[in-house]
């Protein structure tokens, strides 16, 4: 598949590769490489041939980590690939992509509000637009596993 061949150009960032159901390829990368990875992705594909579909933050409480997945759709065949990284649960911080890909705005804001991942450099992050006021005052993130709502 040509798209997957093109992705080989980014191989240096990937630590691990596997597949989640039904056939989405997962590429695990180190969280500090995020910006470089996406800058190279833009170089390889160009702005017109991919978009960030979803950002999923999952609280893995037993491992003490927060997993962050970037689901990217690669055009023209619309192949979905997943760029996955892990952040420490105590201090989940990662670079923001908003200055290079403005389409991540909704996903980053949502992940911040629900799971509490801080995206460095995204000035639009704000608490309390989705969660009710009392959650903001108690400083809890409702999708963390230890939070009871």
């Amino acid at each position: 598949m040509s798209v997957i061949e093109k992705l080989n150009a980014l191989k240096k960032y990937f630590v691990e590769e596997y597949i989640i159901k039904p056939n989405r390829r997962v590429y695990v990368f180190k969280s500090e490489d995020l910006k470089a990875l996406f800058q190279d992705l833009i170089k390889v594909f160009g702005y017109e041939n991919f978009y960030v579909a979803t950002i999923v933050g999952t609280d893995l409480i037993s491992e003490g980590k927060i997993r962050l997945d970037y689901y990217v759709n690669l055009l023209p065949d619309e192949v979905t690939v997943v760029f996955r990284t892990y952040l420490p649960r105590e201090n989940p911080t990662i670079d923001s992509l908003i200055d290079i890909i403005p389409g991540v705005l909704s996903g980053e804001c949502e992940t911040y509000d629900l799971v509490g991942v801080v995206f460095r450099g995204n000035e639009f992050l704000k608490r309390g637009f989705f969660v009710p006021k009392e959650f903001v005052e108690q400083k809890i993130y409702p999708l963390r596993k230890d939070v009871k709502v």
Partner: peptide, 28 residues
Amino acid sequence: SRVNATKYSFVGPVARGSNVRIDVRASD
């Protein structure tokens, strides 16, 4: 514009109205 449609992650009829050929029914 065509480039903004993918850059800002527009999907569905909005993107297809800007000549982005994305349709999950066709790809998946």
